[in-house]
Amino acid sequence: MTSDFNPTLDVQTISADGLRVHYKRAGQGPTVVLLHGSGSSLEGFERVAALLSASYDVIRPDLPGFGRTGPRPDRDYRVRTYARTIARFTAALQVPHFVVVGNSLGGNIAWNLALDAPERVDGLVLVNATGYPEKSLPAGLRLARNPLLRPVLRRWLPRSATERGLREAVGPNSAIVDDAMVDRVHALTSRPGNRSAFVDFANTDQPDRSGEIKSITVPTLVLRSAEIDGQHFARDIPGAQERVHPDGGHLLPEEHPDWVAAAIAEFLPAVTEKSRYRKEERR
């Protein structure tokens, strides 16, 4: 089977936190950083980025362990380490402050970043984000935690498993999982070191910081699908706004990019205006 997917097209790289982080950047204006979820890549926000880049400077990195950035030499896949990497990545790009948007794992990283570097985060958008201990695990993570399967998964993952995982991640009415999507996700997952990095990530002990979520002070928008369970960001983050999609799955930015982009675009002007006033007050 052939694919038109080109993993290097328009991708830039920069050194940050001991890694060559791969990313795409487009547009002008206040900066918005888009963070994909586990098993995904910067393509997870492709359409959302295209819509937002008309008015914003949109940056999409491939997170360590995924996409083109690939595995961390130190094999440290704690969420707080991811947040540190994104802080250093944006600093390397000379972006002092930004709005951070995260889907799934990317959302977990985003709210950790808002806790650890609130002076740099102008706003927070959580899209089916994770981080509460009662969150149910997707099938891929459960398999990667199986001690009998771990050695196999480090070396081999059939394309059929990639397709099955994608179909389980989308909503019941979604038709986005086609051959092109499966080929793209499978090709990036199969890049050197990524399968083993995913196993390392799945088996990393993640400290529970959910008790700190109530301390987040940056303006927050919560976007979630009605069927996504176990997350309470809108309840716990003071002043958070929430929007619920009635039939989306876990991959909202790919399933319903127009809905996601419109919600973010409505949220951003007030956030960036407040940020501008805060910076003027500090002078």
Rank of each mutant, 00 (worst) to 15 (best):
V121L: 03
D122P: 02
V125N: 06
N128E: 11
A129T: 06
T130Q: 08
T130R: 05
G131Y: 06
Y132D: 05
Y132S: 09
Y132C: 10
P133C: 10
E134K: 11
E134R: 12
L137W: 13
A139T: 12
A139Y: 09
G140F: 12
G140L: 09
R142E: 11
R142V: 13
R145L: 07
N146G: 05
L148S: 07
L149A: 13
R150A: 14
R150I: 08
P151H: 04
V152D: 02
L153W: 01
R155D: 03
R155T: 04
W156T: 09
L157A: 11
L157V: 14
L157H: 08
R159T: 12
A161Q: 08
A161M: 15
E163G: 13
R164L: 08
R164A: 14
R164M: 10
L166H: 12
A169V: 07
N173E: 14
S174W: 12
S174N: 11
I176Y: 08
V177Y: 12
D179Q: 14
D179E: 15
D179T: 14
M181W: 10
D183G: 10
D183E: 13
A187K: 09
L188Y: 06
T189S: 15
S190Y: 07
R191P: 07
R191K: 14
R195H: 02
R195A: 01
A197R: 04
V199F: 06
D200S: 11
D200A: 13
F201A: 14
A202C: 11
N203P: 08
N203M: 03
T204E: 13
T204W: 05
P207E: 08
S210M: 10
I213F: 11
K214M: 09
S215C: 08
P219M: 00
P219Y: 00
P219N: 01
T220H: 02
T220S: 12
V222F: 03
R224P: 04
S225P: 04
A226I: 00
E227I: 14
I228N: 14
H232D: 03
F233M: 05
F233P: 00
R235I: 06
G239P: 08
A240N: 00
Q241A: 14
Q241M: 12
R243G: 00
R243T: 07
P246H: 06
P246T: 06
D247P: 00
D247N: 08
D247E: 11
G248F: 01
G248E: 00
G249D: 00
L251A: 08
L252P: 03
P253T: 00
E255Q: 02
W259T: 06
V260A: 13
E266D: 15
L268G: 01
L268S: 01
L268D: 03
